[in-house]
């Protein structure tokens, strides 16, 4: 694992932090979410790791609030795209940031971007809520089922170089394939729903997703052999 300094941390060069606005805009347009807000005083992404460390080391509430202002609206956006209603999304945002506060000491900026760490926490909180809503599992409340299958905070992180590699692989996909991939995974849409949203025939959605996965698989395999 290559060492990454604090001043230029997480997993990618700062200049590449927002390379795919157009594709995301397409997704957003397809989803017709609530009107986006411009963040008032955005903190550059490469400073997020330092903010998290301030939360961990000195329980710095100001740093925490800065992180909240950047990430809470984006976590909410992710949750609503994944099908949560507004009230549920805010509840999950709240649980996510309470965990961010409590677990900040476990964050290692050498291993993952702040955004990755926060994403995994939000994802696990979402799974937890989904489990309560959808599954009639024969489990007690505190059994923590899926929430724990994906641990509370990630123990293992990717080498930043291989993260770049995967990202590059997604970048090389035809825009349409990458878009369908995102709809399928991060927006948790069924193939039928994607077909309806994109006005593509179901068979086309499936075959493009299959193509996209095959390309990613090759990219990942190449990565392992390095």
């Amino acid at each position: 694992m290559s060492a990454v300094t604090l001043s230029a941390p997480p997993s990618y060069p700062v200049g590449l932090a927002f390379p795919r606005v157009s594709r995301l805009t397409m997704v957003m347009t397809a989803q017709a979410p609530p009107r986006p807000l411009a963040p008032a005083a955005p903190v550059p992404a490469h400073e997020h790791a330092a903010l998290l460390q301030r939360v961990a080391k000195t329980q710095d509430r100001e740093a925490f609030v800065s992180l909240f202002h950047f990430y809470a609206p984006r976590v909410k956006s992710y949750l609503m795209k994944s099908g949560a209603d507004e009230a549920t999304a805010e509840e999950i945002v709240q649980n996510t940031f309470i965990t961010v506060w409590e677990k900040a000491g476990g964050y290692d900026p050498h291993k993952a971007a702040a955004s990755t760490w926060i994403f995994t926490i939000a994802r696990n909180k979402r799974i937890d809520v989904l489990r309560r809503q959808k599954f009639v599992a024969p489990l007690e409340e505190d059994d923590q089922f899926l929430q724990n299958l994906a641990a509370e905070t990630p123990e293992d992180y990717a080498d930043p170089a291989t993260v770049e590699q995967l990202h590059a692989a997604i970048e090389t996909l035809p825009a349409e394939q990458a878009r369908l991939l995102r709809l399928a995974f991060f927006d948790d849409m069924s193939h039928q729903a994607i077909s309806t949203t994109t006005a593509l025939p179901l068979g086309t959605v499936k075959s493009r997703l299959r193509l996209a996965m095959e390309k990613l698989r090759q990219a990942l395999r190449t990565g392992e052999q390095r």
Binding site: Y12, F18, L24, A113, T162, V163, Q165, L166
Partner: peptide, 29 residues
């Protein structure tokens, strides 16, 4: 497999950074 998962999670983090923000109520914070 752990490495692969971490790469996908990093992609999720990037997706999060790039999401268009949706207003959060003041009560939440």
């Amino acid at each position: 497999a752990k490495q692969q998962l971490a790469r996908f999670e990093a992609e999720g983090g990037r997706m999060l950074e790039e999401s268009a923000p949706v207003k959060v109520t003041g009560a939440c914070l």
